[in-house]
């Protein structure tokens, strides 16, 4: 079930809330306890814009349990415009093929149903091609 675990991550999952380092101003996502750039303590919340571009991607055919009903699906490394890279599924691709450099934006989607009889739905960030 891991309810506290999913609850604890709600700001990241729903709002892409990371951190800005109070010492060196680096933007950090996912949140960390120590800034990877300057070694200072990192704890100031920062809302990312959710805009970025695809750094790399894969199309999953053999998926881990919990995701195997959804194949094929695309997972990407998305470089956010503020700097950090985030791992996320691509969605709403339609006929478009994913490509490196593709401009994308964050949306909230169902990630999976937690694998148990209570059927908890887990929502979180995915990225879609920027709407023109």
């Amino acid at each position: 079930m891991e309810i506290p675990r999913h609850w604890r991550l709600k700001k990241q999952r729903y709002g892409l809330v990371g951190e800005v380092c109070p010492h060196c101003d680096a933007k950090i996502f996912p949140p960390r306890d120590v800034c990877p750039h300057c070694g200072g303590e990192a704890k100031t919340a920062f809302n990312f814009s959710g805009r970025g571009e695809v750094y790399s991607y894969t199309v999953m055919h053999d998926a881990p349990a919990g995701f195997d009903q959804n194949t094929p699906y695309a997972v990407a490394l998305v470089k956010l415009e503020e700097g950090p890279v985030v791992t996320a599924q691509l969605t709403d691709l339609g006929e478009e093929q994913p490509r490196i450099g593709m401009p994308v934006e964050m949306v909230t989607r169902k990630i999976r149903e937690d694998a148990n009889e209570r059927g908890m739905l887990i929502y979180g960030y995915k990225f879609r091609p920027v709407l023109r």
Binding site: Q12, P30, Y57, Y73, I100
Partner: peptide, 19 residues
């Protein structure tokens, strides 16, 4: 932040190979 997106170990390798 990785496995919860549906990424597998093969998927990690694929991200590197694609790049």
């Amino acid at each position: 932040y990785e496995a919860m997106t549906g990424l597998s170990s093969a998927g990690q390798a694929a991200l590197l190979m694609q790049r």
